[in-house]
Amino acid sequence: MNKEELIEKVNTTLAEEFETDIEKLTPDANIKKTLELDSLSLVDMIALIDNEFGVKIANTELPKIQTFQALYDYLEANMK
């Protein structure tokens, strides 16, 4: 999967799960605000990412992943 395909898959997966307009998922947008995640639904995103991309986001890493761009970069660096 190249980076464009990765971005496409992340956006499609997240927009569908959290019923958000995919146009709103721009690289600089804040993930939590865009997907309207609260403390309960944040863990849904973590589980979804693990399931779809095989990447476990550790609690210590989470604060660093604020924007979609940060998420794409993290996944690219950590996918096998």
């Binding site: 403390s39 944040l42 973590i46 589980a47 476990k56 989470l62």
Partner: peptide, 10 residues
């Protein structure tokens, strides 16, 4: 366990 974040386990 499907996921963990901010003290919540799924």
């Amino acid at each position: 366990v499907l996921g963990e974040a901010a003290g919540i386990t799924l």
